[in-house]
Simulated assay, not measured.
Amino acid sequence: MRLLLPQIAATEDLMSKGKVVVIGSNATRIETKGGYWGATGQYLNETVVPVMAVIDAGYEVVLATPNGAPPTIDKASDAPAHFDGDVHAYEHAKVFYATDPSMQGRTLRSILDEGLDSYDGVFIPGGQAPIVDLMQDQEVGEILRHFHEHRKPTAMLCHGPISSTAAMPYAREFRAALIAGDEDKAKEWAKDWQYTGYRMTVFQKSEEKVIEDKILHAKLYFDMPYALGLAGAIIDTGPDFEPYVVEDRELITGQNPRSDHPIAKALIAALDRKLGHA
């Protein structure tokens, strides 16, 4: 009996309160007006800060992307400035992203094949990359429809909320219509969207202009509030580059990179409520 005690303790240490899938993008380039392709990727703080908080709260995290490779970190986010100037926090985040087992990456298909019933929450961080692939990815759509139908906590940060359009029956056509500037067609393709009527926030147009002017040096084909509003969402945004989070039913959205800590707190609280840990 005495020999079994360390094994029992180790098993208890490994037990988690639940499991969260983090959906990342594999996009490294984004198309802009004039035929120019700009560099893009996932924001470091938007990915790591909420993930570390969720793990610290006792949940298991699994990172999944369309092709199974971890997202490319956007160079614009690779700086202490996105960690309130805290160099130690920035360096810790970089090491975590590069070495922690939760950040190794799996395919979205493997998550679906495993079965979504084993997952209790989903989180989609930003950076502009989700505009390219996640918002029209069929497997993302399948995952989001499951979480919507079962009212499981669904969190999306900064540009991450644009990924919610993947749940549409015609997500690819919706995105193509936005790029073509065909508003009527976009509305038509957005019919029967699961998140119609939901309040949500997202990186707003005035914030996007800063990125377009100072980093991309080009204009995107559409801004995020316009696209989500056209699809049927009720857009609610706060001051530029200030933390802001909106919760509506199972959906939790954060406006910008500085909303990383607040959205983590909101997601953990929603998971605890859903699973009876509160």
Rank of each mutant, 00 (worst) to 15 (best):
K265A: 15
G127L: 07
L116F: 00
E60V: 04
H277C: 01
Y244G: 05
S164R: 08
P70Y: 09
S206G: 10
F222S: 04
E247Q: 15
V49C: 04
G197E: 08
Q7Y: 08
N26G: 08
T154G: 06
S102Q: 14
Y119N: 03
L144S: 09
D272E: 13
R109D: 07
P239N: 05
S77P: 10
T196F: 07
A270W: 07
L63V: 04
E173C: 00
A231R: 04
H82D: 14
G18F: 00
A64I: 14
W189F: 15
D248A: 11
P130N: 03
A76C: 06
K191M: 12
A39W: 09
Q136F: 00
H148W: 13
W37R: 10
K152L: 15
K152G: 02
R29I: 00
A264N: 02
H261G: 04
N26A: 02
P80H: 11
S163T: 15
M156W: 14
D223W: 12
D100F: 11
A166P: 04
K219M: 05
I162F: 11
V95K: 15
S110Y: 08
E60P: 03
D240F: 06
D236A: 11
F123V: 06
P153T: 03
Y198H: 15
L157N: 10
D223F: 08
G68W: 07
L5I: 08
P239A: 11
V132D: 09
R172L: 04
P6Q: 02
L216Y: 13
P169E: 08
D100E: 08
G276H: 02
G18I: 02
G126Y: 07
Q42C: 11
A278M: 09
V245Y: 10
L271I: 03
A53E: 12
L63H: 09
D236E: 15
I179H: 06
Y59H: 04
Y90V: 07
V245W: 06
H148E: 13
R175V: 15
V49M: 02
E242H: 14
K152Y: 01
M200W: 05
A81E: 15
E242P: 06
Y195L: 15
L275G: 03
E31Y: 00
E139L: 14
L108E: 00
N45V: 12
A129I: 07
R145P: 03
D236W: 07
F222L: 07
G160R: 11
M15R: 15
D86W: 12
G41H: 09
N45Y: 07
D113G: 05
K94Y: 07
Y198L: 10
V246M: 08
V51I: 14
E142P: 09
K75F: 08
A218F: 00
Q104H: 13
Y97R: 14
W193D: 12
L275Q: 09
D240W: 07
H159C: 01
I162W: 12
A227K: 12
H261I: 15
